[in-house]
Computed example of a mutant assay.
Amino acid sequence: MVPVAVRDAVLERARAGRPHEICGVLGGTFDPDGRSRVRSEYPAENVADRPRTRYRIDPEEQLEIFEQLDDRGEEIVGFHHSHPRGPADPSETDAAEATWPNRSYLIVSLDPLAVGSWRWRPAGADNDVTSESEGRFERERLVLE
């Protein structure tokens, strides 16, 4: 579940950040089975070499955000970023760089305007990912509250 205010804040940042991708961390209550609840979003600077088509959160800033989450009693629910000129679906690069198992990845598309939510499922016996793969994104229903 995602508060409408969080979704709107991410959309506004995506619009303001255009033509670059924006990114950040989602905090709240984490459930690996898919019933996580977002309570807040933590914007981060995109430090990717090619910010128009990639995103990267600086490791030091990411650590600071994780400390803020911990101080507020929140867990890492997932991450968000934008695709200013593409769909709200994970790109091949998104899949290649996903590293947080069972976390949600909220992707905002500005053209066309859409918000998609995906959960990263690592390869393993608990899912149907082939052994040739590191994992896969699974679409999840975006429930607004």
Score class of each variant (00 low, 15 high):
3 P>I: 02
4 V>W: 01
5 A>C: 02
5 A>I: 06
5 A>T: 12
6 V>K: 02
8 D>G: 01
10 V>T: 06
10 V>D: 02
10 V>Y: 01
11 L>C: 11
11 L>H: 11
12 E>F: 03
12 E>S: 13
13 R>Q: 12
14 A>M: 06
15 R>Y: 03
18 R>S: 14
18 R>Y: 08
18 R>V: 00
19 P>L: 07
20 H>L: 09
21 E>L: 02
21 E>K: 11
24 G>T: 10
24 G>S: 05
24 G>Y: 03
26 L>M: 12
28 G>C: 05
29 T>E: 10
31 D>G: 05
32 P>R: 15
34 G>V: 04
34 G>R: 12
34 G>P: 07
34 G>K: 10
37 R>M: 02
38 V>Y: 00
40 S>T: 11
41 E>F: 07
42 Y>H: 15
44 A>M: 04
45 E>R: 14
45 E>D: 13
45 E>V: 14
46 N>D: 09
46 N>H: 05
50 R>F: 12
50 R>M: 07
52 R>V: 09
54 R>I: 01
55 Y>L: 02
57 I>A: 02
57 I>E: 07
57 I>R: 07
60 E>F: 09
61 E>C: 03
62 Q>L: 15
63 L>C: 09
64 E>N: 12
66 F>C: 04
67 E>T: 08
67 E>N: 08
68 Q>M: 07
70 D>Y: 09
70 D>L: 11
70 D>I: 03
71 D>Q: 11
71 D>I: 01
71 D>H: 13
72 R>P: 00
73 G>C: 07
74 E>H: 13
74 E>L: 14
75 E>Q: 15
75 E>N: 03
76 I>V: 10
77 V>H: 12
78 G>N: 12
78 G>M: 11
79 F>G: 04
80 H>S: 04
81 H>L: 04
84 P>G: 08
84 P>V: 06
85 R>W: 10
86 G>A: 12
88 A>V: 08
89 D>Y: 12
90 P>N: 00
90 P>W: 11
93 T>V: 14
93 T>N: 01
93 T>F: 14
93 T>W: 14
93 T>I: 11
93 T>C: 02
93 T>A: 10
94 D>Y: 10
96 A>C: 00
96 A>G: 15
97 E>F: 13
97 E>D: 08
98 A>Y: 07
99 T>K: 13
99 T>G: 08
100 W>A: 15
100 W>S: 10
102 N>R: 14
102 N>S: 09
103 R>H: 15
105 Y>K: 05
105 Y>L: 14
107 I>K: 09
107 I>L: 13
107 I>M: 06
108 V>Y: 08
110 L>E: 05
111 D>V: 10
111 D>E: 12
113 L>Q: 10
115 V>I: 15
116 G>K: 11
119 R>Q: 15
120 W>Q: 00
121 R>C: 06
122 P>G: 07
123 A>S: 09
124 G>F: 03
125 A>V: 10
126 D>I: 02
127 N>M: 05
128 D>E: 13
128 D>W: 02
131 S>Y: 07
132 E>N: 06
134 E>R: 14
135 G>H: 01
135 G>P: 05
136 R>A: 10
136 R>L: 06
137 F>I: 09
139 R>I: 14
140 E>G: 01
142 L>R: 08
142 L>G: 05
145 E>K: 05
145 E>F: 07
145 E>M: 09
